[in-house]
Design a protein around this nucleic acid. Structure first.
Length: 863
RNA sequence: GCCGGAGUGGCGGAAUGGCAGACGCGCUAGACUCAAAAUCUGGUAUCCGCAAGGGUGUGCGGGUUCGACUCCCGCCUCCGGUACCA
């Protein structure tokens, strides 16, 4: 052990305790220990980027660590782990540029990350560290894929996909933002490429239903529901005039069928060619070509201005026999519903826009109430004339044929009536649809898990035998795609060739790799049994540890990782490989930490190195313009990134942890302000000086066995209660505030009761573990405090005989009054009215009413 | 547009129907010091007032209540997500 310091020197004690915890395996999680209740606390594991940690990473990790340390002291057997989501594009792009193997870059980055994370003193069981790029890990990622493949949940498809020429790869819908790549912000176009796709849609309903039982932020649950996007409606068949062909549409509003005045197909719809008349052909072909070459960005930019072409043929509206023109337009998506719609321009704003532009008939079949019209600011006569679009509630009109009448019915009733009629006539049926698409699961990259698949000479696709897993990434010296656009693995000639052990056939390995999501889809299961070479996990251990009790991570993963992973888990559950239908019981998102930034009078952000502070104001170094401070996302370009290493070097890990938790509520967005660290740093100094004499390094002479005064005793127990409740609720900011109050008070005392001081150290220990361990040791304890029972508040010691209440006159606080703590409402009123100051206030006025709230206030209403 | 979250001192925030601004930053006065730093003590929403005291105040406008930052109705602004899903 290093030499003892006298004053508080974080650098001197933090390394010492990190070493102690490591050597003694203090935070080892014990498998299947039935003598204690288990608690599985999970952090979203990081991608180890070259930039190292930023201050946002440790926020969630600190929050979960405090929870774990607190729960250990409460007697739980805690599983708390860390690992690396280490496949990914940056290491591969770096490899393309420099020739450095991604594994080398990744290893280096992981070492930086591990060192940084260790410097925070997080109580991970480091023996369970995992790395998604380790063949011992991705062997089992491939194994799970094999299970999905056997279940028939993986298929190949050649549909047009999001191709990013700059990145040389295809992207999932979720990785494309406004027609540009999420990573790097490059343009994305549509291009048909052979892909592997997972049938997540088969689990759409289960994924939707499962949301209900989760203790997750309501907003996140809602985002998942919206992403799955369930809708109920009907499919309706339209005969094409003068043809045997039949067009099927999906609509959520079958009740508006009487208002359908034309049809629209997606340009990619298979019947477009057949339904186009010779005189319309050249225009239609040109339109389809233009649409197919458009990038997603172009399609979205054209949002407002509808385009389209008439095919020249007509369909028959099944409810009234009317012929209606068939058009194509890219506002209809090929991939949703049936790729064709019936257009009801009077009651759908998109159809209304299109009909207005191309002068198609608009027939109103829904009459809103006068009040609804007034509320929407439209004239009823305009709605009835089809001059404005009405998408709200109303009563049907002009909606009858010989067999069916919806006239006078509301929306819900007419939907049911119409669907039943369609079904009875064989013209359609009630249908459920989901926005959720199947999951594009392959990437044309090197640095990902190889698929455990081979292609036979006959075009068949087979899994490689389980005994051959893992299919290891081959060594390569060039990581670029091949000249003809094949993935980089197509260059690995030796690796590529595979002789099927059964048939002896010459096969070729699959050259696509899995997306980064694959490894993170199941990592929480591997932590349970990370060194198992025989299985992905031991079922007994899985049963003991799962489900995850608390999952902490950023809201940016609300629909991607969290939905994909739930999907895999549901498949594993169906196969009997896991014991619970959902992986994460409770989920919390830490709020983003923003940097300090500045903007000029136009509102443009100014990089921090161009800002000059003067007289408490801020000015542009070059233009001299006055700037205003505001919080903004940390970014390299704004030069407002805070490196945790610098903060720890200056203030120590305990102060860092404390500051991040003290900034504000965990779940909220908060601006980082390094000056604020001073406050918690001073607080830690005060704690230290409360116990250690900084002259001698010995215990303070004030520490003794004399009991505390009743007031101090009361504050101590109130603090135990408040800190305990606040930690339970993850309200760490107010817990710290209470500890500050307690320390300020104890510092004023001449005599500091030893037990009281020890209680303070225990209360502080989950939040600032290094200083707490050090003080605990100096107070004479041999072992770590990590498993010392958590202090209990004694209600007897919190009792007071007299309390101050406030007397309000007409709701305004006027007089303060001491009353017995257990005074009844009547007694309180009596005491209030007997008070001279109160009498003076109400003199000459008559009392209308008086309300007393026990232990709080009396309100006297006078006239 | 739609969905979600948030608006409280110079700043981060506290209080979820009962004394608005706990705790901290910053600022400020004082103590210690030859001096400074550090530390300690006090003050610090705003307006009127020498003071005692009083008025105003939780994005804006209404409402419920003895009493509203908190609940209800209608807006505004900012942040995040999503976007022709028929």
């Amino acid at each position: 052990m290093s030499e003892q310091c006298n004053a508080y020197e974080p650098a001197a004690i933090e390394g010492k305790w990190q070493q102690y915890w490591k050597e003694n395996k203090t935070f080892k999680a014990v498998d299947c220990d039935t003598s204690r209740e288990k608690l599985y606390v999970l952090d979203m594991f990081p991608y180890p980027s070259g930039a190292g940690l930023h201050v946002g990473h440790p926020e969630g990790y600190t929050a979960s660590d405090i929870w774990c340390r607190y729960k250990r002291m409460k007697g739980y057997n805690v599983l708390h782990t860390m690992g690396w989501d280490a496949f990914g594009l940056p290491a591969e792009q770096y490899a393309v540029k420099t020739g450095t193997h991604p594994a080398v870059t990744t290893k280096k980055n992981i070492e930086v990350f591990r060192r940084q994370l260790e410097s925070f003193g997080f109580s991970f069981d480091w023996d369970r560290e995992i790395n998604t790029t380790d063949p011992g890990y991705y062997k089992w990622t491939q194994w799970i894929f094999s299970q999905l493949f056997r279940e028939g949940l993986a298929y190949q498809s050649e549909l047009p996909v999001n191709w990013c020429p700059e990145l040389g790869t295809v992207l999932a819908n979720e990785e494309v933002i406004n027609g540009r790549s999420e990573v790097g912000n490059y343009p994305v176009i549509r291009k048909p490429i052979r892909q592997w796709v997972l049938k997540i849609t088969e689990y759409a309903e289960e994924l939707l239903q499962g949301i209900e039982e989760l203790d997750w932020p309501e907003g996140t649950k809602e985002m998942q529901r919206n992403w799955i996007g369930k809708s109920t409606g009907a499919e309706v068949d339209f005969q094409v005039q003068g043809s045997k062909a039949c067009l099927r549409v999906y609509t959520t509003r079958p009740d508006t069928l009487f208002g359908a005045t034309y049809m629209v197909l997606a340009p990619e719809h298979p019947l477009v060619g057949q339904l186009t008349t010779p005189e319309r052909r050249s225009a239609v072909v040109a339109y389809c070509q233009a649409a197919s070459s458009k990038s997603d960005l172009d399609r979205t930019e054209l949002n407002k201005d509808k385009t389209g072409e008439f095919l020249g043929s007509y369909a028959i509206n099944p409810v009234n026999g009317q012929p209606i023109p068939i058009w194509i337009s890219d506002y209809v998506l090929a991939s949703y519903g049936t790729g064709a719609i019936m257009a009801v321009p009077a009651h759908d704003s998109r159809d209304f826009e299109f009909a207005s532009k191309f002068s198609l008939p608009i027939v109103c079949i829904m009459k809103p109430s006068l009040q609804d019209c007034a509320a929407a600011g439209v004239q009823l006569s305009d709605v009835l004339a089809g001059k404005v679009c009405w998408t709200g509630e109303g009563v049907h009109s002009n909606s009858a044929n010989a067999e069916l009448s919806l006239d006078g019915l509301g929306v819900d009733d007419s939907k049911k009536t119409m669907t039943l009629w369609l079904e009875s006539k064989g013209l359609g049926k009630g249908t459920v649809n989901y926005k959720l698409r199947d999951w594009l699961f392959s990437r044309q990259r090197y640095w990902g898990e190889p698929f455990p698949l081979v292609h036979g000479p006959d075009g068949s696709v087979k899994l490689v035998p389980e005994a051959e897993l893992p299919v290891v990434l081959p060594e390569m010296d060039d990581y670029k795609p091949t000249a003809d656009g094949e993935p980089p693995l197509a260059r690995a000639k030796q690796w590529l060739n595979y002789r099927d052990p059964g048939s002896g056939q010459k096969c070729l390995r699959e050259t696509n790799t899995m997306p980064q999501w694959a490894g993170s889809c199941w990592y929480y299961l591997r932590y349970i049994d990370p060194h198992n070479e025989k299985a992905a996990w031991d079922p007994a251990k899985e049963k003991y540890w799962m489900p995850v009790d608390l999952y902490v991570g950023g809201a940016e993963h609300a629909v991607l990782h969290l939905l994909y992973s739930r999907f895999w888990h549901k498949v594993l559950y169906k196969l009997g490989l896991v014991s619970h239908p959902e992986p994460w019981k409770r989920l919390i998102h830490q709020g983003m930490i923003l940097g300090i930034s500045y903007k000029d009078q136009r509102g443009a952000l100014v990089p921090n190195d161009l800002v000059e502070p003067r007289d408490g104001k801020y000015f542009h170094r070059e233009s001299g313009e006055e700037l205003t401070m505001l919080p903004a996302k940390m970014s390299k370009s704004l030069k407002n990134v805070v490196n945790p290493d610098d903060i720890i070097k200056r203030y120590g890990a305990d102060a860092f942890r404390l500051y991040e938790m003290f900034m504000g509520p965990l779940r909220e967005v908060k601006p980082w302000n390094t000056e604020g660290v001073e406050g918690v740093y001073r607080f830690l100094h005060r704690v230290w000086k409360l116990i250690v004499d900084v002259q001698s390094g010995a215990l303070c002479a004030e520490i003794c066995d004399d009991p505390l005064s009743p007031e101090a005793e009361r504050l101590l127990h109130q603090s135990i209660k408040k800190v305990t409740e606040d930690i339970e609720n993850l309200s760490y900011n107010t817990a710290i505030s209470q500890l500050m109050i307690l320390v300020n008070e104890l510092n004023r005392l001449e005599k500091r009761n030893r037990q009281a001081v020890e209680t303070l150290v225990l209360l502080l220990s989950p939040l600032a573990p290094h200083i707490a361990e050090e003080l605990w040791q100096r107070l004479g304890h041999r072992d770590t405090l990590a498993y010392t029972p958590w202090p209990q508040a004694d209600p007897e010691k919190m009792k007071v005989s007299e309390i101050e209440i406030v007397v309000q006159i007409n709701g305004k606080p006027r007089v303060r009054l001491q009353v017995p703590a257990d005074a009844s409402q009547a007694q309180m009123q009596e005491l209030a009215l007997a008070d001279a100051a109160v009498q003076e206030q109400i003199a000459g006025r008559s009392i209308v009413k008086s309300i007393a709230v026990p232990a709080r206030l009396v309100n006297i209403v006078v006239k």
